[in-house]
Design a protein around this nucleic acid. Structure first.
Lengths: 339, 339
DNA sequence: CGTCGTCGATGAAACGGTTCATAGCATGAA
DNA sequence: TTCATGCTATGAACCGTTTCATCGACGACG
């Protein structure tokens, strides 16, 4: 095992030399073993073993052109929602013997662009991305250059791009309806910037539902924009809500991490949930039901979302398909109180 | 924008032809712009823009040999502990303009091997890995072939490999001491298989602490091996604990996800926490303090862990360094009760 | 006995970049 | 005027594979 470290990685021609065959034959052993006679094959394999030869992926890809890797860009790897989606992607890709390169854009369009470029340079088969911008022109361009592109967690605004999404308007509307039924007439919404489509959609869904229920959104809805869609954002946003003159009786959060921060802040401020402030989350992550006050949340089919996205990416017909799943409101004590 | 999709990606020679220069010049524009006169540079850049030229990473890498990408393999991307570590890695890598390929082995040595191979084939600079096996010979081999290797969340058993870890024995021991001080004399430990080093270490730490405190580990400790280190594992393990004849009064969990499953199961079974069963987690993930019963847990410096690992990977001297952080027990109500 | 087909192995031409020795060409000094 | 110098641009070699046309050997067959 502790042979002296070779200065240079063994190449296929080193193997060929050692096995006394041509490089073409070594390549055949690697890729079409049946085209090679058993004795030669044996000899080549022995040489490969001897030199600890590992084929150079770049060279292979350069020549062969194809690669069984896909890329995914999510907004934040440390958000369980996205990692559950990633899990769905991985599971589907593995069936096809593909591998996944995962990256997070941090909601930063430049980071997104950088990873897209990296992926393209490395010739991935395709890319699944939760865009950090409303605009997807750059993704259409990418597709124009031959990459598979699947929009993740966001319906495609154009009919040239596949997408796998959950109906965010419906999810937000369901939450709004629930709150209004409970008697809330003034609702805070801790939301991210509308440049992120999910945020814009959830805002619209909330708005529409309120109108439908006969409320004036301008009065009933206070939307607070938070800089980061995590617990810290939830904390800052909640502090703002608590400082409002005409304090809302319910807070809806753009995701469960944000809700976590909200609950923490409310507890620190001594505001009881839900009697002092009802709270609704979004995503229904694993811990939502186990919190001090179990969290009412909008459940999304995360694993399926990823699975289907990978499915589309691998589709041999390269069809453009836009899939929309329906979310489901899971009611718990953060809105209904004990019982 | 909707130009007809080119059948083939533009190459550097297409650019050269259009700009009426040689390929070498185009390459220079890309890599050493100062070596090229402004007017030529301008012309080349215009051509690049025109053709939407994206350099082929494989070709570049094949020739140049180097690449600014690193790989990381963790046990489970959907475990917040690992994603927090990944975040730390990403943040450090970004400073150096490196990119990260993240993958999860699912605690499966074969998957780990497959990703390692993929990474090596693609010539990553190095790899940070939470090994799924106690054995690291394959990683030494990898290092022998010139890849940087950093063991993540696990001290290196050999002095040829760098590692960044947290003292798992100390963490588990602190938890054990805490429980014994509270009067517990019989403790269940929901742990993963000892083939995972962290699991073995935490078991040993627990064991040693009990001995030190004058208890007989054979009586005081019931270790239950769970198949998956997540909430489902915690649920199954807790069901076993509850079925024990001489039921322990405290359960220690190998991580917070497991503890989440344990708490859920205890609640379903009507067992009060901590009076009926104290629970300790490990990792102190974001939601630990916000649970129905806030969870006592062993906090690890996740972000630092990742940051330092990336640091070692990037170290220009390629020194072999073994870093160990100290964990910290965070006491909450799941062991001490209200107050 | 010559011809043909098959099978295995060969060697060279790509793939798309980087790098480097070299050459062309002003410019300024001698 | 000559020559050294510096600046640009060139083109070919090379990186490590895959692929494909070709070739030799050998057995079957007419």
């Amino acid at each position: 095992m502790t042979t002296t470290a070779p200065r240079r990685r063994a190449s296929i021609s080193d193997v060929a030399r050692l096995a006394k065959v041509s490089v073409g034959t070594v390549s055949n052993v690697l890729n079409r073993p049946d085209r090679v006679s058993p004795t030669t094959r044996e000899r080549v394999l022995a040489a490969i073993d001897d030199l600890a030869f590992v084929p150079n992926g770049s060279a292979r890809q350069l020549r062969a052109g194809t690669i069984t890797t896909a890329g995914a860009i999510v907004l934040d790897v440390s958000n369980p929602f996205f990692t559950d989606v990633a899990r769905g992607i991985e599971d589907r890709l593995e069936e096809a013997d593909y591998t996944l390169m995962l990256a997070s854009s941090d909601e930063n369009p430049e980071r997104e662009a950088r990873y897209l470029r990296l992926f393209e340079e490395h010739g991935v088969q395709g890319v699944m991305v939760v865009p950090a911008t409303p605009d997807v022109e750059h993704l259409e361009t990418l597709r124009g250059r031959g990459l598979r592109v699947v929009l993740l967690d966001r319906p495609s605004p154009v009919d040239t791009l596949s997408s796998v999404a959950v109906d965010d308007r419906a999810g937000a509307a369901a939450a709004a309806r629930h709150l209004v039924e409970l008697g809330h007439e003034r609702i805070a919404f801790l939301n991210g910037p509308h440049t992120i489509r999910q945020c814009a959609d959830r805002s619209a869904g909330l708005h529409d539902a309120l109108v439908e229920l006969g409320l004036d959104p301008d009065r009933a809805l206070v939307e607070i924009t938070i800089p980061t869609l995590n617990a810290d954002g939830g904390q800052g946003g909640t502090e703002q809500v608590l400082a409002l003159a005409d304090r809302p009786t319910a807070t809806m959060c753009v995701n469960d991490l944000t809700a976590l921060g909200a609950l923490r802040t409310l507890r620190a401020a001594g505001v009881p949930v839900p009697s002092g402030m009802a709270v609704v989350g979004y995503d229904d992550v694993a811990f939502a039901g186990e919190l001090a006050t179990p969290l009412t949340s909008v459940r999304q089919p995360t694993h399926q979302l990823g699975h289907r996205a990978a499915d589309l990416l691998l589709d041999p017909d390269d069809a453009v398909v836009q899939v929309t799943f329906q979310p489901e409101l899971v009611v718990r004590e953060s809105t209904t109180g004990v019982g």
